[in-house]
């Protein structure tokens, strides 16, 4: 084989670089534990307007659908899987479906996962969060 040293050296550097995050985590103790969320007072931890597993996976799609139906479709009531009806809204806490009606501390809930996953939703550029300007 020609250039054995260069190739093996290059491969070694490649392996070190590609596994660097793992080494870094081991060295600093940042194991990337999933964030601990502060659930709304009185919540059972299992049930939002839909089940927790659904909300965890689909809340962005749900919000997208809500946006289209409320802004473009004139439909402002959401029929949940369990038959409950919620008034579609994000921040107007007088409306039954408003996220902030329960999640009054988005910094302790929304932001934690978003930060963990490196997601930066721009909802808050316009929609106001409770207790924040």
């Amino acid at each position: 084989m020609y250039d054995t040293g260069k190739i093996l050296g290059g491969l070694a550097i490649f392996v070190v670089l590609i596994t660097a995050p793992a080494w870094y985590a081991l060295a600093t103790g940042h194991r990337g534990a999933p964030p601990k969320l502060e659930l709304p007072a009185g919540a059972d931890g299992k049930h939002c307007i839909e089940s927790s597993s659904f909300m965890r996976a689909e809340h962005m799609q749900l919000l997208d659908d809500w946006r289209d139906s409320a802004v473009r479709g004139l439909d402002r009531d959401y029929l949940a899987a369990d038959g409950e009806t919620y008034r579609i809204n994000l921040s107007d806490t007088r409306q039954s479906g408003a996220c902030f009606r329960c999640h009054s501390h988005p910094a302790q809930f929304c932001d934690k996962c978003h930060a963990y996953l490196g997601v930066e939703p721009y909802c808050w550029d316009c929609h106001q969060r409770p207790g924040e300007k």
Binding site: A70, L74, R76, R87, L90, S91, D92, T93, R94, Q95, D125, C126, H127, Q128, P130, K133
Partner: peptide, 26 residues
């Protein structure tokens, strides 16, 4: 104060009167 129940806008969008569509709908 700003009304927390209604979104503000952001720099770079056009806005206008909506005949309070969000109120009529409820």
């Amino acid at each position: 104060e700003a009304n927390p129940d209604f979104p503000t806008r952001t720099k770079g969008v056009v806005e206008k009167c909506t005949f309070c569509a969000e109120r009529l709908d409820v």
